[in-house]
Design a protein around this nucleic acid. Structure first.
Lengths: 254, 254
DNA sequence: AAGTGGTCTAGACCACCCA
DNA sequence: GGGTGGTCTAGACCACTTC
């Protein structure tokens, strides 16, 4: 009853995927319930669930306990231009808030940030980037949840060496975005960034904080800012859900 | 028998994850078989499989039919510096091959590329980037599989407007990497790139071509090259498995 | 041939959402 | 309260790897 060429749940997934791609199942529309699919395909419920899991992993559907499974709405992705973000000249016309908030506001949606500030020993990776001793050094950590229309959109955690920002407004749990970045407001000028982007599945904590659908990968964007002497001033780690973001860079060829 | 606070398979996954993180299960080591885990935790095999699937999605283990489940070896990720890649000045000492091949060779491993060339109508997204009519335009497509020690590592597909490269060596299915990039060798100078990075789960075709473990996300890196007049010359789309790569950029702050 | 993970069945109760 | 997906059981046979 089992061994054909391809597993049954593959073929069920292929069939449903085709219906979605051909538009017979439209974005936002509810799929048949698992029980109905069980009857339609004459298989057990577990087999149906394997097929649905496959589609979930492909970002085609989302399931909610007690609600049903739905064809996923493809939101337009937000574009973050990291070669422009935090550029001083781009902020002359917009002294309040950062580029992210501006972009969101322009598209008619409500940006908001929740900020918490603490002083902590940094994670090993951050300590290395900041050239600090991971055993003894302290960092001021600004953890931000960026929300659009009250939906969590990204996590952005910044780490500053504690000695650099002691006694500055950076240590207040408020939105201190400013022209040239928050560091410029306390007299520290970043002249150069190094960005590193990695891709992975989210941790469970990130899944919760970002309300991520199952099997949504995230980009981890780590930006280290240096002053003109090459001294690291800050590490910012941004968690960008893959379904909501495009990362852009403009690069001169020489 | 069921409803505690957290599902059983969560706690089994947490337990095994802890063993891996504490080093009690070492990279490369085989996990107990599903049958043994069934007895150890006094649960059914399906519950064990749910726990193992969780760890698979977190990239901690890999399973092979007929072989067993193993703690994943964390390969050092390859760093691609896209603000340096294809820079002409960086190639003076290395006339043969691109920066990617150089980096791999320096780490003592064998780089190799498989190239196939065809002339095709471009996908809609590429046509838009190249400012071509998707109905009529033709592009020369160079599809590359980049391998390290004969293991597939990344896919890199380049699209050139057919009229720009007609009759040049670009249309030969050989490795034509050259100082300043392949386009420079036929007299076309890219003065500026626009890069866009997105994150998603791989398609089934990509999973096969890259031999990806289950639930490995990929970064899609799309680079559009422009000449000094702002005319697009090329689109390169690179598929980077998340477990093997770091994308790096150096960005001047102003 | 033995052992492993992959697929599949036919049930059951639980947790959550919505009318 | 009724319906949905989430978790779980106790079996079975298949496909692949290894010996």
């Amino acid at each position: 009853m089992v061994g054909e060429q391809t597993p049954r749940y593959h073929r069920i997934a292929d069939d449903l995927r085709g219906q979605i791609e051909r538009g017979e199942l439209k974005p936002g529309e509810q799929l048949p319930t698992e029980w109905v699919l069980t009857e339609q395909y004459s298989v057990s419920r577990n087999t149906v669930r394997l097929a649905l899991r496959r589609l979930t992993e492909e970002q085609l559907i989302v399931a909610g306990q007690g609600r049903g499974s739905f064809v996923r709405k493809r939101l337009p992705r937000a574009v973050w231009d990291w070669s422009q973000l935090e550029s001083r000249s781009k902020h002359t016309s917009d002294a309040k808030g950062d580029q992210w908030a501006s972009i969101v506001a322009e598209s008619g949606r409500q940006p908001r940030q929740e900020v918490t500030v603490s002083i902590r020993r940094p994670p090993a990776e951050v300590a290395q980037q900041l050239q600090l001793d991971p055993e003894t050094a302290l960092t001021v950590v600004r953890e931000r949840v960026r929300l659009v229309d009250n939906e969590p959109y990204a996590l952005a955690d910044s780490y500053f060496p504690e000695e650099l920002v002691r006694g500055t407004p950076l240590m207040l749990p408020e939105d201190v975005s400013a022209p040239g970045g928050v560091l410029a407001s306390v007299g520290l000028i970043q002249s150069h960034y190094q960005d590193e982007i990695t891709v992975r599945m989210p941790t469970r904590a990130e899944t919760e904080r970002l309300s991520l659908p199952t099997a949504t990968p995230v980009a981890v964007h780590q930006r280290t800012g240096y002053d003109s002497d090459g001294r690291p001033l800050r590490v910012m780690i941004t968690i960008l859900p893959g379904d909501r973001h495009v990362i852009r860079y403009d690069v001169p060829a020489e």
